[in-house]
Amino acid sequence: MKLLLRAYPRRWRERYGEELLALLETEPLTWRVRADVLRSGLGERLRGSGPAPRRVLWAWSLFVIGGIAFQKTSEHWQVVVPGPDRAVPTAAFDTVQVAAAIGSAAVLAGVALAFPAFLRDLRSGGWTALGRPIVLASAVTSVAAGALVAVALDHDIVTASIFIIFAVVSLFAWTRAAALAARRLQPLRVHRHLALTVTATMVAITIAAAVWFASVTAHAPSFVGAEQLAVITTFMAAGIAVAATGARAEGRGPAA
């Protein structure tokens, strides 16, 4: 019976577990009852103990930097791996692409679903709190866009570095604005599901990228440079750590 209770998040068990256990002891433990408890427990997990949506925004932003570095690093990898040995790295690489597409779609869906409430919040006084971060993010994005135009015109390494720095700052500035906006809104139930989806895709991408790295470097040990590998692993690990920390913090908080 106690095993059934494991379906619920720890925070919920601490608050209601003993009561539910006492109730279950008065009921015949049929399969229908077991299924009902299991379904409710998993529902509570989805509802209350997943990573907080705004925490996942930060996690995804960090992860995206690692993902872009992976994308750049993996260009033309087929050249160094002989045709007969490409099955594993191809499957791993495709998994990264598909998971990245799913994760991005989940983030965009979350933003789109929150947008009407965000607009209502802006109209009812939210601009006072959100105006400055939004203006700051817009300004940084403008500088990054200007640097991108300059890079396209003269291919200068210094300008390219400036673009990269401002692009990263722009990403974080928009994430900060979005997280501040999310803090003011009541997340929908679907946001919890989307946050779980994004976290799952980050884990899938990391595992697939590790498989790809191992299978490619088996044929070309120097294909991925140490600096590129450091950027990829640092930001991917940071993204997952932020999401995981958020999930643990949510599950540990006081119940009532």
Partner: peptide, 14 residues
């Protein structure tokens, strides 16, 4: 009501 359904609703009502 199933016990899980009951306590799910109690959680929400509280």
């Amino acid at each position: 009501l199933g016990p899980g359904t009951l306590y799910g609703a109690i959680t929400r009502l509280e």
